[in-house]
Simulated scan of single mutants.
Amino acid sequence: MTKVLYLLNFAGKAGTERYVETLVNYLSADGLVQPFFAYHEGGLLVERLEEMGVPCRRVEMRRRFDYKAARDLAALCTEWGIDLVHCHYLREHYTALLAKKYNPHIRVVYTNHFVLANDAVTRFTNRILDKRQDQMIAVCNKGKEQLIANGWSGERIQVIFNAVDLDAWAGERSQSTLRAELGLDEGRFVMLCASRFADDKGHRYLIDSVKRLTQRTDKPFTLVLAGDGPLLEPTKAQVKQLALEDCVKFIGFRKDIKNLYKGSDLYVNASRHEALSFLIIEAMAAGLPVIATDMGGNSDIVNDEAGCGLLVEYDNPDSMAAAMERFLEDPSFTDACRENARRTIEAKFEVHKMARATFGVYEKALHDGFQGV
């Protein structure tokens, strides 16, 4: 069994943490991987992995070129007999690559969770460290293109979409308590957005879109906003300023995300940056059609072939409002997208396929990887 150390700077509660937990769960359940976990800053993921019996250890990683962290990581890999380190952001990625100097046995796999251009200095250091890299994973096609543009070797980059377990998201509307909690009747059209309240998540223009929607349709609807973050209070103030309190509801950070999906009719993504959103594919697995911005890897999920929703232009309230209106006014279109959503997940974003493909990358790194220097 391959011993894999999952390395993450901040072990919080976002999509990357969900990715790590998914791999740990399914690869260990299939007897392919014995998982271990190391982190710099603890959070909810540490709690969850410890509950699963995964050994966890803190490794201080203060910056990208932190040689003390690299030595500490190499020593931890020796202590635990680690074969491969799977990391997810540049700080821990650089740390793992530098650790090969002190423990040449380990191999390194890096998953890129963003579609973001690096600056010139980072592109230069990427090219230098590329000779130590074994394998890389991009979670969407545009992510692979960006990795190459950022200085990494394309022949060692595999595209493996994020994925979910369809069985975990099965269920009926009647199982949800969301509508009763908010006092919403069954006939009301409910849209859900569960993004963190941060600048790149697009809440400002999403609220502007809702205002435009109220001017375009008489159909009753509610937008439910789940999550927390630094821009929560400014967003609440914007809703009050636009007199949208009757149709926009804030419910805070929630762990019962399936309950929220099952009580909704549509999932809305308004983000500026996406690689391949777990929230989108979870919502689809739960049977929801999707509106998503045409950014990053969203077009790998929502497109004409999939027929599961609509792409809109980022920061364009008219584009978003028109898409919302389409779902409100055309029930047959909504039903068709709902049917296609689960079909799309089964075909392209199913968790067992993703886990096996990722393990294939581990095997390639172990058998064909580059020796650290």
Rank of each mutant, 00 (worst) to 15 (best):
T217K: 05
T344W: 04
S174N: 06
E313H: 12
T214C: 12
V290Q: 06
K262H: 07
G42N: 08
L76M: 03
V115S: 08
A306I: 00
D208H: 10
K142R: 13
L206Y: 00
R58G: 05
N141R: 15
N25M: 01
R342D: 02
Y6Q: 13
D83S: 08
V46C: 05
D246S: 14
D83H: 11
D246Q: 15
R254I: 10
K219E: 13
V190Y: 02
R64P: 00
A243S: 15
A347L: 12
Q133M: 15
Q371E: 12
M61I: 11
A138E: 03
T2Q: 12
L49H: 07
H367D: 05
L276M: 05
G143H: 08
S195R: 13
A336L: 10
A292V: 03
L279P: 04
T22R: 14
F197M: 03
R64D: 08
A283Y: 04
D83A: 01
D199L: 10
F197K: 00
F124T: 15
A322H: 00
D228K: 11
N141M: 07
R356P: 01
L184D: 09
E47A: 12
F349K: 07
N303T: 04
L178W: 02
A74D: 05
K3S: 07
L129H: 11
M52S: 09
R64H: 13
